[in-house]
């Protein structure tokens, strides 16, 4: 009963205080504002501590949300962008490669158009199956008209000759193989010889006349005496002339004109001269005229 009375008294006291506060606020607004400010200062300071704590927690949660949970999509987006970059890099590389290939084809086409020979473009698809021959495999074979002994060139010069064919591919023996021999002539002195490959991956011009004044730096071209190549195709440059006492001939080492390790496309000479029939008829006519007297 005592508790009930006390509660009642407190409530009445609270109502009276609240009423006084309202009256004071209505009748003395400025003074009550100052009073409240005066009392609110320390209260604000007291409140600032939990406020800062809660605020930091709030920021922590927000950071966690934004940095981890909400960033799931950003992470995925980042991965997608990385994939896009890789894809674009690949495409860029392919385009560069295509551009290089187009330039090579353009050079090859220009050479083909200017060349006096009938040629067939082919791609290098492999190297010799053994380590013992310097050869390469082309993607053109008998079904494309390729036959053995046909010459193989690039715009830079002689590559080799076809030694094996099947219906879809052919094998070329490079000019640097010791088993290869091509008739060559020194461009400056017009001395003829036979170009053979060496064991060191170069070529050698053999059977140069002893009195010849060939020297290092002279260019060697095809003589046109053998059927596979027309006259005047570059084979290489002399780098060292050797003349031993007692020998009947000189010989010289040749640096091939074509970098044979970096070949992608080549031309196969299907007919050394464009109008082979006309040339044949002309030769026959000349021989015929000679026989008449």
């Amino acid at each position: 009963m005592a508790i009930s009375r006390s509660t009642y008294g407190t409530r009445r006291l609270a109502i009276v205080l609240f009423a006084c506060l309202l009256v004071a606020l209505l009748l003395l607004p400025s003074q009550s504002q100052r009073l409240l400010q005066y009392v609110g200062g320390p209260l604000g300071q007291v409140l600032s501590l939990p406020l800062a704590a809660f605020s930091s927690v709030d920021h922590g949660i927000a950071d966690m949300w934004n940095g981890y949970v909400a960033l799931q999509s950003v992470h995925e987006e980042n991965r997608q962008l990385h994939r896009d970059i890789e894809l674009l890099k690949g495409q860029n590389n392919q385009l560069r490669e295509s551009m290089t290939a187009v330039q090579r084809y353009e050079t090859l086409l220009n050479f083909k158009q200017q060349s006096p020979s009938q040629t067939l473009a082919a791609q290098v698809i492999g190297r010799d199956a053994t380590n013992w021959y310097r050869g390469m495999i082309l993607n053109k074979g008998e079904s494309d008209g390729v036959r053995t002994e046909m010459g193989v060139i690039t715009p830079a010069g002689v590559v080799g000759r076809v030694v094996k064919t099947n219906s879809t591919s052919s094998v070329v023996l490079l000019v640097t193989d010791p088993n290869n021999a091509i008739a060559g002539v020194v461009q400056r002195t017009r001395d003829e010889g036979i170009v053979e490959g060496t064991s060191h991956g170069r070529a050698r011009l053999k059977y140069i006349p002893l009195l010849s004044r060939v020297q290092a730096g002279d260019r060697v071209v095809t003589s046109g005496l053998t059927g596979a190549f027309p006259r005047g195709l570059a084979i290489g440059s002399l780098i060292q002339v050797e003349k031993s006492e007692g020998d009947l001939f000189q010989s010289a080492e040749i640096e091939p004109e074509v970098d044979l390790s970096k070949l992608d496309e080549v031309l196969i000479i299907t007919a050394p001269y464009e109008d082979a029939d006309a040339a044949q008829k002309l030769l026959q006519a000349i021989h015929g005229d000679r026989k008449k007297p």
């Binding site: 199956a129 053994t130 099947n166 070329v172 088993n179």
Partner: peptide, 14 residues
Amino acid sequence: CFQDMLSAGDLWIN
């Protein structure tokens, strides 16, 4: 046999 087809050497050697 396959290697000989893709090599510049004689056909018997491989």
